[in-house]
């Protein structure tokens, strides 16, 4: 059961029970064959849930009609039979109470149908690694910090994707070493 939790959440949906065999009434059989495979799946899943890189992802589960923070707690939470609900990346500094009303930006998907076809092709999900000053230097963040102040939410824990998983989560003050790039111009006097 613990593993079920590990592999099913916002990001890790891509994994399990490819054949949809269900046991125990409504509870699906979620045996996971291969973790690496699963995490690649998760990247695809995440990308599919965003209209473009930077767009808020569509919620990965149905509406359970309870407060989002019941499960998406500061340390995340394993929800038996559903998956690991990660913490949200929006921190205190985001401002304007972005954390107060989640469904202002994240919506549920209630149908697969489209109203009309679209040719919109959004900016692809950004999986580039951050540039390093020299091979041993800590990488510069490849994305903006706004709404992503809480690094641990995406870079650590069971829901973190393989490609961006941090191998030193115990060092919690990330911005001490990893800079956020705020401009592409160079310093001139």
């Amino acid at each position: 059961m613990r593993w079920l939790g590990l592999f099913l959440c916002l990001g890790v949906l891509g994994v399990a029970a490819s054949c949809g065999k269900q046991t125990d009434g409504d509870v699906p059989d979620m045996a996971v064959p291969n973790r690496g495979e699963a995490l690649k799946g998760s990247a695809a899943t995440r990308a599919k849930r965003r209209a473009f890189d930077g767009a808020p992802p569509v919620i990965a589960h149905k509406d359970f009609r309870m407060a989002c923070t019941n499960c998406h707690k500061p340390k995340g939470m394993e929800v038996p039979g559903v998956g690991f609900a990660p913490n949200m990346p929006h921190g205190e500094t985001t401002g304007l109470s972005a954390v107060a009303r989640c469904v202002q930006c994240h919506v549920f998907k209630t149908t697969d149908k489209k109203f009309r076809q679209s040719s919109f092709a959004g900016l692809k999900q950004d999986l580039r690694t951050g540039k390093r000053h020299h091979p041993l230097a800590p990488p510069v963040m490849p994305h903006a910090l706004f709404m992503r102040e809480n690094c641990q939410a995406c870079h650590t824990g069971p829901a973190a994707r393989e490609e961006i998983r941090c191998d030193h989560p115990e060092r919690t003050r990330c911005t001490q070493c990893h800079l956020a790039r705020r401009t592409t111009t160079e310093f001139t006097r």
């Binding site: 949906l13 399990a16 490819s18 269900q22 509870v27 699906p28 979620m30 359970f64």
Partner: peptide, 19 residues
Amino acid sequence: LKGIGATALGVCAFSCGDK
């Protein structure tokens, strides 16, 4: 639990087609 069922369907769709 129904939600979980729906989630499982989503899982299939992703794991079968999205490698």
